[in-house]
Amino acid sequence: MLLLSAFEWLVRFQHMDRRWIFLGMAIAIAIPMLFPFTSEFSVDRSVKDAWQAVEDLPEGATVYISADFDPGSRPELEPYYRAVLHQLFTKDVKIVSATLWPAAPPLVFPIMEEIAEVYGKEYGTDYCFLGFKDGKELAIKSIGENLPKTYPVDFQGTPIGDLPVARGFKQLKDFPLIVLVSAGFPGIKEYVLQVQGQYELKMVGAATAVSGPDYIPYYKAHQLAGISSGMPGSAQYEKLVFLEHPRENLVHPERLLGIEGVNVLNLGHVFIVLLIFLGNVAFFTTRPKGVE
């Protein structure tokens, strides 16, 4: 009788209302948020390479940042974005940035402004934000070919010629490094396909966990100098910038969102793996004979 009910329970478990799964997931995610803990992790080669490419920049160089993410991918990419901004500003590297995502400007520019303020950087001379450009691949092509023509003015309408930081940069090729913070399309893949090959640009990027694997071939083919993918990548980057190699002028932020997030991820993954495991156990103990 007990056996029978156990059997039945297993059968039911396989077809349980998915809201139970949602509840479980919610709990798994909430725990590390409510009771933060730290866990050890090492840094992937690809993340280290991305970090190194920034480190290798000569002082006073100017990089181009394409910040193409939206609130949805914010948890994964914002930590990287913040960390790389810290890294660049502490190195006195200047920034020209823009975005191809319509939803990005209100998100990415305030962050840049905030961190710039921390390091006392000035808009126009140390960094600038050219705003959103529609056209996706076409826009990338156009930026690659002629930056001022694509962005005659910045997001506030200031002519690009009046921004000292952007002065003299005609093409993407003129930047020693391009940093792509990319949540999907258009993003890293399009930059690689449209302009990297043609102009032999040096690029590093951060991608979401979902699209990260897509870019591995580019990294392997040296078309990307480095790549950080997903929350773990962001956390590793934070670790490099804030914990392992802090520059003396670094201003530590209050929270390291990536490192916190990776703990959430930790439990989330464990929860899913557990679910899969239990699901299979239930399936194999209850499946009728002869069914494949």
């Binding site: 866990s39 050890e40 992790f41 090492s42 997903g230 991820l265 930790n266 993954h269 464990v270 793996v273």
Partner: peptide, 9 residues
Amino acid sequence: MIGRVPIGE
């Protein structure tokens, strides 16, 4: 899944 998060390490 496990290897991508710290617990894997």
